[in-house]
Design a protein around this nucleic acid. Structure first.
Lengths: 352, 352
DNA sequence: CTGAAAGCGCTTACAG
DNA sequence: CTGAAAGCGCTTACAG
């Protein structure tokens, strides 16, 4: 009787739509069972007799019922959505990761809520507030500036998956790329080509990745028995402009170098332009190596030798880890190791 | 009494969080008014006496109350979220638009739900289903392959803002960039530099923008009294690879040309690489012009002359138009006209 | 295995 | 101007 009443009037929300809203109650009525039972088979919460299950499945198919995530969220506390804090939604680097996350969640019936933290701890904290007010079931934090402690705290409240840090805590899973090894590999490649004077354009010093890559650079040098020369290191901010500026300063300083290792591709692109402006050719006059392997690195002029980061896979791995956390399982994913991709921007040092 | 009961126990959702959930009911109790009244001042639905309003404001501040958008969505039909169908969340072109949308909504207390339509009508239709099942208040469609009719239909159900088409219907607002004029401008620029044999790398033929740009190319040629030569036109798919292939085919075909206009920057980058491989220099041997002005166009080698599209502004405009639609107002935004950005990839034709 | 009932946190006619 | 009540579409103890 009550159900009947619901059936016969359009809900306010439905009034604005073309097809009237099909509710769980309508499915229950059509299948001749109680709403509780429908809910239970939907959620796999309980075993239900074969007969009822079939009747319900049929009713769902016939009515084209789709559970309302909003109601589900209110009643059950699960919204089937997870927040993703990306530092910049237009990031050329993280783009593919977002794609991997979206794909993975999509298949699992989850939705991703992307927000931009702007590389600012306060802004990221605000993002978390927004996401939590939207009752996301978990949060993925792609690097950023939040302290490990802040993440640990959040993890007490809801599952967190983070990238770009090494961290372990209850309800928290972190995935980290071996930036040290990447930096070492890139430098080693240049060394193997005979280069001895290798300039390094560093990334943002507040960024752990940047420091790791620099450590890798120094380790490779050391392993080759080459003294570290601070004059060959220029600070950068991970963007094109800073790469360009770094090379200009390098050139103006008069230090000799035959190769440049930029801590990311964007800075390498800027570096390439600066060299071009000074009529230095890559790789004839200067070898250039980047880091990240952005989608357009292979279309740079010349195509950029770089360290490949499996960003798309990173996205899938983080999303899957979140799904595991949500299911009460312990994620075990590990990032694939860095790979060096030789292209045309680096070549054997010419004998003087 | 009833409220008291609610106050004294943690909700299930809150149980999982650190801070217990502050509800509207608690605010009402603290302020000594009914929940209805709190709701009303929150929504500006009714005029409330100064005394009560103050008491409520104080209670909200003191308790740190934040309305639950989920409950709001269920009860009121408004979720304060709008869906954004971007064809690829990692698109280098739309990235900045997403940013503009996010910023605008953020300030207005709305959240954007980004989903990728993958340039596939069926997939886009699925996106709309997902978004509507999440009860978004409106949907922004960044170009895509959905038919105008499909959008018109959706607009009967909820506000739609679309880009990349010229379209008018109740509940629907469309914003379109003047691609024809852009194509004309780019070609005109090359013509003004003395080029007569201008190759054109077309975009995906199913993409309206692509056709408009090509129309602009032909119109400029015609205005200059130059016969259209089909042998100078190569098909492309708006990605780097297709630009590279197009130039190879052009070169292999043996047609003479001194300049190339690529229908977007990504194809221009591919074209530049193809020319490089054939030892043709830009702009010395061939002038090259793109379209879009991607963030990295200015860091291409050489920096790419192109048509600027104000993508970030496009994002803000669409978001604002949606906000207006939601408020029952009629949006009036118009896209800024195309601007040509001369950089170093194009130059005066050298006399033979 | 399955229902009836209460509840999630809000909003909104309905009555003053 | 303001409350009490019903309702949004689900879920989940609580009882069989």
């Amino acid at each position: 009787m009550k159900i009947k009443a619901v059936t016969e009037r359009k809900t306010r929300a439905a009034a604005a739509h073309d097809k009237p809203q099909v509710t769980l109650g309508m499915v229950a009525e059509a299948a001749g069972v109680s709403p509780s039972t429908v809910s239970r088979i939907l959620n796999g919460t309980a075993v239900v007799s074969e007969v009822k299950r079939k009747a319900i499945d049929r009713a769902i198919a016939r009515l084209g019922f789709v559970p309302n995530p909003i109601a589900r969220g209110l009643a059950g506390g699960r919204t089937m959505s997870v927040g993703v804090i990306t530092q910049a939604i237009d990031s050329p680097f993280y783009g593919l990761a977002l794609r991997g996350i979206e794909d993975t969640f999509d298949q699992a019936g989850y939705s991703a809520l992307f927000v931009s933290g702007q590389w600012d701890a306060a802004e990221e904290a605000r993002c978390i507030e927004v996401l939590r007010s939207r009752r996301v079931d978990g949060i993925i934090v792609l690097t950023g500036r939040l302290s490990d402690q802040a993440l640990r705290n959040q993890a007490k409240a809801l599952p967190i998956v983070a990238t770009g840090r090494r961290l372990k805590a209850p309800g928290l899973f972190a995935l980290d790329f071996d930036n040290f090894e990447g930096g070492r590999l890139a430098t080693h490649h240049l060394l193997a080509l005979g280069h001895r004077r290798i300039a390094f354009i560093a990334g943002d010093a507040r960024h752990p990745d940047a420091n790791e890559r620099q450590r890798g650079y120094r380790a490779a040098l050391e392993a080759a028995g080459i003294a570290f020369d601070p004059g060959l290191v220029m600070p950068g901010q991970f963007n094109e402009e800073s790469g360009l500026l770094a090379v200009e300063r390098l050139l103006d300083s008069g230090v000799a170098f035959s190769a440049i290792f930029a801590a990311n591709d964007q800075m390498a692109f800027g570096a390439a332009l600066a060299l071009h402006r000074r009529s230095l050719r890559v790789p004839d006059d200067v070898s250039l190596v980047g880091f990240d392997d952005l989608p357009n690195a292979m279309y740079a002029l010349p195509p950029l030798s770089t360290i490949h980061q499996p960003v798309h896979e990173l996205g899938r791995l983080t999303a899957n880890a979140m799904l595991q956390l949500l299911a009460g399982e312990a994620p075990t994913a590990v990032m694939p190791p860095p790979r060096f991709i030789p292209r045309e921007s680096s070549r054997m040092l010419k004998k003087a």
